[in-house]
């Protein structure tokens, strides 16, 4: 039996719309990518506040201390219990001085977990004071939904 010979044609799909969309998606994610993730810590969930607005001026000299719920503190690459942070704070103090900056003008940004004990935050601030720092910033998350979340009545009988 004779089989009829067919002319094969290459079917080409039009890839232009797909490439357009893909480039748009890449542009979208590139614009929204968060480059400041080094300032965050997985162990810390910040408290929120209606007045916590991103600062209009960027802090020039600052150190960030992450304080987890269990009292673990992270400063730079050092992670230890907050009570043992004195040596690390002294090292940062000296680094700032040798770089020609004034340690008293350096802001210590405290990113504490919302369930951390307030007394621990106080003690951490005291440790920083003893190391020579005096400017602090308590970081909170911007509350965009309802600023009255924490303006709730004290439980009855309290």
């Amino acid at each position: 039996m004779r089989i009829a010979k067919k002319d094969f044609e290459i079917l080409e799909g039009d890839l232009t719309p797909m490439i357009d969309m893909t480039f748009q998606l890449i542009a979208f994610f590139m614009v929204l990518i968060n480059f400041t993730q080094s300032e965050s810590n997985d162990k810390v969930q910040l408290p929120d506040s209606e007045l916590a607005k991103p600062p209009e001026t960027v802090l020039e000299n600052y150190r960030i201390i992450h304080l987890a719920e269990d009292g673990t503190a992270v400063l730079g690459t050092v992670e230890e219990h907050y009570k043992g942070l004195g040596g690390t704070l002294d090292r940062h103090y000296n680094e700032i001085r040798y770089s020609g900056e004034e340690p008293t003008d350096t802001t210590i940004v405290i990113r504490a977990h919302k369930n951390a004990k307030g007394g621990i935050v106080q003690e951490l601030i005291q440790l920083c004071q003893e190391a020579g720092f005096e400017s602090f910033a308590l970081r909170a998350e911007e509350n965009v939904n309802n600023g009255l979340k924490y303006i709730s009545p004290i439980p009855a009988g309290g």
Binding site: F29, S135, A137, R139
Partner: peptide, 20 residues
């Protein structure tokens, strides 16, 4: 970009000055 994408809410500071 999809894998590294993370929605982060805005953060703000309360400044306090407390010398020792």
């Amino acid at each position: 970009f999809i894998m590294t994408f993370k929605i982060v809410s805005m953060e703000g500071d309360f400044n306090i000055r407390m010398p020792a």
